[in-house]
């Protein structure tokens, strides 16, 4: 990436934010992910679909470093990250919004947001302010800054989780079922917010989702079954068959 010549020599590598090759992950002795290959081009939104229990969350946790793969490699912006701890990966620019939100419960909403600053390369550095953009995206958070994170409703926690990930200015946003168990009006808000984030910042997004409407907004999809990727392609080409097979609708 340092010289244009090098870029020409490796045309495939340079425009991929994330590349996963031949990943095998186990929980104890049960084989969960089987030979997973996946790549996320820069600035694109990629959606991972599949029924409950096929291993989507497991894949995302492995990308974050919460689980160690038995074989396989993960590259983030061409750098191997397979051996790095989650905090190093976050600092490199992976923002994670986990399934179940994982808001720090007995810490105020403001402090939850400020914790998101730790993912910036230079850390928090005495930074005490929350950028206005965050409140433009999620106005509801502004009125709740002094509340405890654990006291928010599910929808509010989801918005907080996304906002917290954005505080670190990630290059890749990883979202695990952000609309699960949330009322329809808030789902639309969250969808719109993700759209605005992509427009404004041009970051790449990896989304795990069950709602067809949201899936349609992605550029590409990967479909997972029994821990392996069984189909992939452009989202426009998503056929009714594939949808029937992989989405719980």
């Amino acid at each position: 990436m340092t010289s244009p010549q090098l870029t020409q020599n490796n045309p495939i590598q340079t425009d991929l934010t994330l590349r996963i090759s031949n990943l095998n992950v186990y929980y104890g002795e049960s084989h969960i992910l089987r030979n997973v290959d996946m790549s996320i081009p820069s600035g694109q939104m990629v959606c991972l679909i599949g029924r409950n229990g096929v291993g989507k969350t497991t894949l995302l946790k492995t990308i974050m470093g919460l689980l160690k793969p038995r074989t396989g490699e993960i590259f983030f912006a061409d750098k191997p990250i397979t051996k790095l701890t989650p905090d190093r990966r976050a600092k490199m620019g992976i923002g994670y919004v986990p399934q179940g939100r994982e808001i720090i419960p007995r810490v105020s909403v403001k402090d939850n947001l400020l914790l998101g600053l730790e993912a910036r390369p230079q850390g928090r550095k005495g930074n005490e302010s929350i950028p206005e953009e965050i409140f433009d995206l999620f106005p509801v958070l502004k009125t709740m800054l002094s509340r405890m994170g654990g006291d928010l409703s599910g929808g509010q926690q989801q918005q907080l989780a996304i906002a917290r990930a954005l505080m670190g200015k990630p290059r890749l946003l990883v979202l695990d079922e952000p609309t699960e168990g949330i009322q329809p009006s808030i789902i639309l808000e969250i969808e719109a917010a993700v759209q605005r984030i992509i427009k404004a910042t041009g970051i790449s997004v990896l989304l795990v989702e069950q709602h067809l409407h949201f899936v349609r907004q992605a550029d590409r999809y990967y479909a997972m079954q029994k821990g392996g990727i069984v189909a992939s392609g452009n989202t426009e080409d998503l056929s009714q068959e594939v949808i029937q097979q992989f989405l719980a609708v």
Binding site: P86, P98, E102, P105, R106, D111, A119, R120, R164
Partner: peptide, 25 residues
């Protein structure tokens, strides 16, 4: 203090804290 906040975060949710970039070690 900021380190105090990190300590509280790790106490309450270690896995998520590390995903936020907090060096848990």
């Amino acid at each position: 203090s900021t380190w105090g906040l990190k300590i509280r975060a790790v106490t309450q949710n270690r896995a998520m804290s590390s995903c936020l970039g907090i060096p848990t070690a």
